[in-house]
Amino acid sequence: MMLRRGRTRMLLEAGTVVAVLLTGAWLLFRGTLYRPAPAGPAAHAAQESKVDEAIVVAVVGDVVRLSPNGGTSALAAGQRLRADDSVRTGRGGQTDLQVGGRSRITVAEGTQLTVREITEKLHRFRLTRGRIAVDYKADGVRLLRIESADGGAVAETQGARFGVLSTGTAVAIATATGEVNLTSQHKTVEVRAGTQSVAAAGKPPSGAEPIPAKLLLKVADAAAAPDRGGLCAEVVGTAPAGAEVLVDGAPAAVAEDGRFRVRVPAGPEKKEATVAIRDAGGRETIRTVPCDGRASVPPIKDIAIRWRKKSP
């Protein structure tokens, strides 16, 4: 009996030693000689479908990151934005975000964009103010959704290249390729390539119309001359529907018919007021209005009196 137990114990010990040796050999082989085969297209697709963040691929000028807890920091290439993170660009600032592996959103200057949701089926953002340019690649049923600050206007697409401009009082869409649906007040307008549509706050979107060949801006100085009451100028003008108007860099309130009026204070060194507009397609037009009022009422430089001779 004792002999039998000793033999069994010896066999167990031998088996344990063999198992340890085989495990060590496998680990050595895996760490030095074995190289796994590269992941195929299916594996890459599976990884891409799980992406839940937007990747910052480029930053130019003044761009900051706003975290959900209210913190602010400089944005840098390589950073990853998750739900409720925001980016804000200052004058001359711009950043590019990569979403879904192949699509890109360019955030232009004077813009605030917030990530709301990035999942396998939905990429959702909120455009508080400003302009973004979108190059969104079709990928099955995945959907891109851009919402206005209050959520009243929504742009959706499964694949298109287009621009979105939010002025605070209107949302404009200009489509270069593909199709984008603009919805507001329970009405949806399909904005196809080469067309644009505008949804004023609280109103349904306008019908899609061809994008104008030129971005027109008309301005004048309505301040009385010579008594200007401490004003550089009282800028009045008209801009296309849905366009953003900036007077000396500050947003101007624009009526539904495109009219605006801004009183610009005078200053010791101030010589003119600058009026700039941009549309959803990214086009810009700039005009200047001199502070001396010469743009609207040219001053009299000389008086010539011609005497008529009396008849004899």
Results as ranks from 00 to 15, higher is better:
Val247Met: 02
Thr183Leu: 07
Pro265His: 13
Glu272Trp: 09
Lys218Leu: 01
Gln185Ala: 12
Glu190Tyr: 03
Asp248Phe: 12
Ala239Pro: 04
Ala243Arg: 04
Ala233Trp: 13
Leu231Tyr: 00
Val247Ile: 02
Ala201Lys: 13
Ser197Leu: 08
Cys232Gly: 00
Val275Cys: 04
Ala208Pro: 10
Val262Pro: 09
Leu216Arg: 06
Ser184Arg: 12
Asp257Leu: 10
Glu190Ala: 15
Ala222Glu: 00
Gly242Ile: 06
Gln185Arg: 11
Val262Lys: 05
Glu272Lys: 08
Ala220Asp: 11
Ala252Ser: 12
Glu234Cys: 01
Gln185Met: 11
Gly267Leu: 06
Pro204Ile: 09
Gln185Val: 15
Ala199Asn: 10
Glu244Leu: 15
Val189His: 14
Pro226Asn: 02
Ala223Gly: 02
Gly194Pro: 12
Gly267Lys: 05
Pro204Arg: 13
Ala222Thr: 00
Glu209Val: 05
Val264Cys: 09
Val275Asn: 04
Gly194Tyr: 12
His186Asn: 15
Thr188Ser: 14
Val264Glu: 09
Ala201Arg: 14
Val262His: 10
Ala199Tyr: 12
Glu269Leu: 10
Gly230Cys: 01
Ala225Lys: 00
Glu256Phe: 05
Ala252Thr: 05
Asp221Gln: 05
Thr188Arg: 14
Lys214Phe: 09
Ile211Tyr: 07
Ala223Ser: 07
Glu256Asp: 15
Ala200Cys: 08
Arg261Asn: 15
Lys270Phe: 10
Ala199Val: 14
Val245Asn: 03
Pro265Asp: 14
Glu190Pro: 13
Gly229Arg: 00
Glu269Tyr: 08
Ala239Gly: 01
Val264Leu: 10
Asp279Leu: 06
Arg263Leu: 10
Ile211Phe: 07
Arg263Tyr: 04
Gly249Tyr: 07
Ala223Val: 03
Ser184Cys: 03
Lys214Arg: 10
Leu231Gln: 01
Ala223Lys: 02
Gln196Phe: 08
Gly202Phe: 13
Ala276Gln: 15
Asp248Leu: 09
Ser197Val: 12
Gly237Phe: 00
Arg192Met: 09
Arg278Cys: 03
Ala243Met: 02
Leu231Cys: 01
Lys203Thr: 14
Glu209His: 06
Val275Glu: 01
Ala239Asn: 01
Thr188Trp: 14
Gly229Ala: 03
Asp227Met: 08
Arg263Ala: 15
Arg278Val: 02
Ala220Ile: 03
Val236Tyr: 00
Arg278Ser: 02
Gln185Lys: 12
Leu216Ala: 03
Ala208Glu: 06
Lys187Pro: 03
